[in-house]
Design a protein around this nucleic acid. Sequence first.
DNA 1: AATGAATGAGAATTCATTCAT
DNA 2: TATGAATGAATTCTCATTCAT
Lengths: 198, 198, 198, 198
Amino acid sequence: MVSTQSRRGDTRQRIQDVALELFGERGYEKTSLREIAEHLQVTKAALYYHFKTKEDILISLFQDLGRPLDELIAWAEEQPRTLEMKKELVRRYSKALSGAAPLFRFMQENQATVRELTVGESFKERMLKLTDLLRLPEGEAGLTDQMRAFTALFALHAGMFALNHVEGDLEDKRQAALEVALDLLTQAHAGHPVNGTH
Amino acid sequence: MVSTQSRRGDTRQRIQDVALELFGERGYEKTSLREIAEHLQVTKAALYYHFKTKEDILISLFQDLGRPLDELIAWAEEQPRTLEMKKELVRRYSKALSGAAPLFRFMQENQATVRELTVGESFKERMLKLTDLLRLPEGEAGLTDQMRAFTALFALHAGMFALNHVEGDLEDKRQAALEVALDLLTQAHAGHPVNGTH
Amino acid sequence: MVSTQSRRGDTRQRIQDVALELFGERGYEKTSLREIAEHLQVTKAALYYHFKTKEDILISLFQDLGRPLDELIAWAEEQPRTLEMKKELVRRYSKALSGAAPLFRFMQENQATVRELTVGESFKERMLKLTDLLRLPEGEAGLTDQMRAFTALFALHAGMFALNHVEGDLEDKRQAALEVALDLLTQAHAGHPVNGTH
Amino acid sequence: MVSTQSRRGDTRQRIQDVALELFGERGYEKTSLREIAEHLQVTKAALYYHFKTKEDILISLFQDLGRPLDELIAWAEEQPRTLEMKKELVRRYSKALSGAAPLFRFMQENQATVRELTVGESFKERMLKLTDLLRLPEGEAGLTDQMRAFTALFALHAGMFALNHVEGDLEDKRQAALEVALDLLTQAHAGHPVNGTH
DNA sequence: AATGAATGAGAATTCATTCAT
DNA sequence: TATGAATGAATTCTCATTCAT
């Protein structure tokens, strides 16, 4: 059952859709409420019926689209910190990423802006939790292996957002990035068996 | 003591310094010329004596601080596309990154904004050239290995900018990221011997 | 008594009125939007609710007040090019001139400015059409008679705008100028019977 | 012998030349000192060595180029107010006009601007004197004949500036306009013998 | 559920002008 | 006879936001 929120007519939805699209294209600061309103063929004032402020639109996007990620974190926090769990976490994160690609893309491309907004805090917190979940037990691993674990996360981002210009189907790239990420995790956990073998 | 006297002649430089600092902290859009001017204790109009537009300040930063990177790319383009060259490229890139950290950080955190600016084009081009230099020969390698090669680049970025909240000396983290990147390159070139393990 | 109430709905009109007045008095460039806004006791931003740019205000004036002139031209273009039609054209033009005196005066006194604006093109076109309608058939008349026909137009302008400092009622001067203009037309068409006298 | 003024190197001259050109093209307000300086390949500050203010440049142009006109007026004021003198006045004025065409053109196209400047007063005074010299004796002539006399002046202006778009050599047009002007004068003095004859 | 009309704050930019050198 | 560096005051314009209807 869909939330009460999203049922109230569909204007709210449409505002969110257009806002996400424009925020993604031109950035949060550069996207004015006038532009959003014009795309929707309503007046600016109409936006204020549905959202208290401009930032509020962003917050709502973040809450709605980010929920799967919160659930993922919640799930992971209850699991044992095994390699297998981390792999599963990374698999699920990759899927979440592709589900809410525009939002994640926006977050990545507007870090400086977002940092100053309320929403920035929560985003940072999520990322912190996520990296914390991947972290290796203190003392057992060197900085390089820690870095490998973290890099797994960035490999996924690279696969989703940074390789637009590269040939290939998005889903294929996602799979490839996931594979790389899983490898990195495995290597991190193994100590670094690959080093030196070549 | 900073007398008026001693400042003469270096205003342009000081504008660049302050601008980079503020652009980095609050983002390009959110940083007004008024703020920059106030930090420098000059009037806004003084900024316009030294730079034609706000964007011009950014362009100048990009040109001045990005030169080492251009030189690196120029160098690499004349080398054979061997694994050893790529490793060297990555090593040098890592060093360049730490040399112009504030600019690179700014670029990463303001992608959406920068994309709309003239400077965005050049930045994109650089990145394209860089990824192209790391690319494996067509047909000889699968998408996953291509991804591994690209991820090497992102591993460096992750090491420099994304792990601020993580414990540890910046230089140590840079070294760790470099190690991960070099590994990724090696694996990409070897075919994927590790894949078989899972 | 001008209550806030009674003003609602006519702001656009009032902006046009004040703008025309000030543009006429001080010139287009020297008239700032601040001044217009202050005269109206609204904020500058209010002007931008009603007009997209400063130039837009001028364009709107030109379109609204210049319409009679366009209609006059349209009418004349469908008439045969007889002396009688030209006389009627000049009579009607004289009337149109006195109906939109402030605008025409502004156009005459701000030619250099107006030339660089969009509105300048349309103005020039109108004048071109007008002079073309008065032009004598090629070959049949010398340059002097052509000049006589054109000067008829300028006689009207002189009567309306250039003789402010001269004694006499404006309407009387208009009539006198009209008479001169009609004479010039007649002479132009007659060949130049007066020329022989010197 | 050239005045001391114009001997002092030639930069002053060059400033005047460029200023007149640009003032004429883009208008006084729209022409910035920066533009003038750039055209001359000097700095703005250099302009201030030669002229106290922007307006001062205009004043100097007006004085230098307007001198012939002042002399013309001085001459005419000592002559008897006969038709023949007026004809001569108009002939000489026509010549003066073509000698200082750019300045007169500027004055005509920037009336609104010039009106607010000191220079505007003198210009208006000159025009007043000129029209006064052409005026018919009170009582002896109707408003229409007065208008005819004044229009003679405007006919000259029309010939010089308003017919750019019309075919024909400028000098030919000037002659034609002069002829029209002389006719108008003659008619004004004759009473209006042409009226009614057709 | 939305609009029309407006505002206050602030942005980037331009300009004529100044002055020590 | 100029320049380099700066300023103060203004300008056009944009934006998020408000509120009576």
